[in-house]
Computed example of a mutant assay.
Amino acid sequence: MSKKIYLVAGARPNFMKIAPIVRALQKSGDLVYRIVHTGQHYDREMNDVFFEELGIPEPDIFMAAGGGSHSQQTAKIMLAFEEYCQAEPPDAIVVVGDVNSTLACSIVAKKLHIPVAHVEAGLRSGDIKMPEEINRLVTDSISDWFFVTEPSGMMHLRREGKPDEAIYHVGHVMVDNLLYQINKLTQTEMEASETSKFKEVHAAQARRYGVITLHRPSNVDDVEVLSNISKALKEISTELPLIFPVHPRTRDNLKKFDIDLGRHITLVGPQAYMPFLDLWKDAAVVLTDSGGLQEETTALGVPCITIRENTERPITVEEGTNTLVGTDPARIIAEVGKILRGEGKQGRRPHLWDGRAAERIVEVLASKLAGS
């Protein structure tokens, strides 16, 4: 009888990470799987559209956990997931990334003596004020199998006492998904959208452009920090037109703090995966505080400026196209200037970021569960 696993997804980055695992499971046929959607992100822009674009089957389980504080959201997910696991226990669960769903479902499974596999394990920013860092630390403290994207993850896990036989350097499912989707992108016409129209205008004028994403509370909830970042972006935009898909939290704070980004920055709403990929893959530079974009830009060789004081993905700086600049306006402007003058770093795609991480993960899971 085939072993059964639950694949847990709940927020936007999770969808991109489980998609290649689902494809690898379908290809291998060694394991039965169910997709558990916690509903941590629950509006269409952050939810349904990703299942459609990424070719992920409809969730087998949908919890509709919704919003609330970190504690409220985590508690709702734990209560709902416990019911499902007790009613129909899986042989293992797979959690990805570092969102509240990852933490909540790992705790529930472990207390029910269900093995936990953590994909994207071992990443550390060293900043305990980040909710994601807490989620990473707790999840890794109780997981059974660790699937790692880069050498720093292996180093952290070993330092924290994890046994070598439980740690697997497999590559990155986010890159698996990126390479799969970019091939689809070249075969498909993009529907008319705000971003495609923006690209068309600048292509017609043979002009370069940049892309912005900002959503970290440390960047967008503090009026002084957000004002300083905005001043830098406004100055950069006088030389390089920028397009900014604005996270709802960021949009609210721009309005609340009465921050004007100027006429050279085009504000658009949150983007579905494919239009956004089509936008940033051709950008002169991406300015972001996103973890995933640091990796994706490195995978495609797009210059990236990370507006944070730290990163849990150091390989993107050490080997990739990412530059960590903090939030000082002068530094942000200076580093973008280097890129525009052709003086930016030349990165490379890291080892095992080859589009086959999910296959390696499924092979390990099938082997581990076959012996259980």
Rank of each mutant, 00 (worst) to 15 (best):
E235Q: 14
I259G: 08
P217N: 09
S227V: 11
F257E: 07
V225F: 00
K256Y: 11
G262Q: 06
V225C: 07
G262D: 05
D258M: 13
M274C: 11
A232G: 03
A272W: 06
A272P: 08
T213W: 06
V225A: 04
N228H: 13
I259R: 09
T250R: 03
D252F: 14
T238C: 12
Y273M: 07
N253F: 09
K256V: 06
D260F: 09
R249H: 06
I243E: 02
L261K: 00
G269W: 08
L261W: 00
R216E: 00
S230L: 03
I243S: 02
N253E: 11
A272I: 06
V268W: 02
I229A: 00
R251H: 15
R251G: 15
T213F: 06
Y273F: 15
V225Y: 00
P241C: 05
P245R: 03
G262A: 07
D221K: 05
H215L: 02
A272R: 10
S237L: 04
E239M: 11
N253G: 10
D222W: 08
S218M: 10
H247V: 06
S218N: 11
L240V: 04
L254T: 00
I265L: 04
V220C: 03
T238P: 08
I243A: 05
E239K: 13
E235A: 11
D252R: 14
S237T: 07
S237R: 03
T213A: 08
I259L: 09
P248L: 10
P217I: 02
D221R: 05
I265R: 01
M274G: 12
R249W: 03
E239D: 14
M274V: 13
P248Q: 10
N228G: 10
H264N: 15
V246A: 12
P241G: 03
K234S: 12
N228A: 15
E224G: 14
E224P: 11
